[in-house]
Amino acid sequence: MTDNIQYHEHLIPLTREQLLNKLDNALSAGRFAHVQRVEKVAMDMAKRFGADVEAASIAGLCHDYAKQRPDEDFIAVIKQKKLDPELLNYGNAIWHGVVGAEMVKDELGVQSEDILDAIRQHTVGGTYMTKLAQIIYMADYIEPARDFEGVDRARELCQSNLGAAVAYQTKHTLEYLIENNQPVYPQTLLTYNAWVPQYRKDL
């Protein structure tokens, strides 16, 4: 079914086949398989929650486009585009989403801010997230190869309560960072405050 999806030029100037070829060249075999799994989950969720299925396909495939780029590529983009200099204190885990969206825009021709925001926010969330952004955030977290304590509950929430699912992931991501003495990107804390208290009865 996904092979027949037609992309509209206002979203991306590539066919799905052209996009897959570019991703295949940019990613390892394992990462390439991951983005295709995320695409499928995202499209299913878009149908369930009434989001744009075509945009979900593109965002699902492109969310990790920059994941395997060298650090200097990200640093160059942060400086050239005058992005928040605070980003320089972090690394690929943050950069491949927040900065990677700029590469998706410039190198793959994606102009849709909805898609770009979903890519920007898939690692750190946002105080406001469109339905598409929520879907990509969750599809990446629950795709079939994910296997960690709590993933079944996340999948369950993704069937019926998207906002609670976002809150659940955000809470567990923050707990993980704290337990492992990792730095917390400030946006992650803002995302936590915006989503977790609001859905605390559903978690």
Rank of each mutant, 00 (worst) to 15 (best):
67 K>C: 04
67 K>M: 14
68 Q>F: 15
68 Q>A: 09
70 P>F: 00
70 P>Y: 07
72 E>V: 02
72 E>K: 12
72 E>D: 15
73 D>E: 11
74 F>P: 13
75 I>M: 09
79 K>P: 02
82 K>H: 12
85 P>V: 06
89 N>C: 12
94 I>N: 10
94 I>F: 12
95 W>G: 02
95 W>D: 02
96 H>E: 03
98 V>P: 00
99 V>M: 03
100 G>I: 01
101 A>E: 12
103 M>W: 11
105 K>M: 04
105 K>I: 04
105 K>Y: 07
106 D>H: 13
107 E>V: 01
107 E>G: 06
109 G>Q: 07
110 V>L: 03
111 Q>M: 14
112 S>N: 14
113 E>C: 01
114 D>I: 06
114 D>P: 05
114 D>F: 06
114 D>E: 13
115 I>Q: 06
115 I>F: 02
115 I>L: 02
116 L>M: 10
116 L>K: 08
118 A>R: 00
119 I>G: 04
119 I>T: 04
120 R>K: 07
120 R>F: 02
125 G>R: 08
125 G>H: 07
125 G>F: 01
128 Y>F: 10
129 M>D: 04
129 M>F: 03
130 T>L: 02
130 T>S: 15
131 K>R: 14
133 A>I: 06
133 A>N: 01
135 I>E: 03
135 I>L: 00
137 Y>V: 03
139 A>Y: 02
140 D>E: 09
141 Y>M: 14
143 E>K: 00
145 A>Y: 14
146 R>C: 10
147 D>W: 00
148 F>E: 13
149 E>M: 15
150 G>W: 03
150 G>V: 10
150 G>C: 11
151 V>N: 09
151 V>W: 09
152 D>Y: 14
152 D>H: 13
152 D>W: 11
154 A>N: 06
156 E>H: 12
156 E>P: 01
157 L>Q: 00
158 C>G: 07
161 N>S: 14
161 N>V: 15
162 L>E: 14
164 A>R: 07
165 A>I: 03
165 A>E: 03
166 V>Q: 13
166 V>D: 11
167 A>H: 05
171 K>W: 08
172 H>P: 02
173 T>Q: 15
174 L>Q: 04
176 Y>V: 00
177 L>V: 09
177 L>W: 01
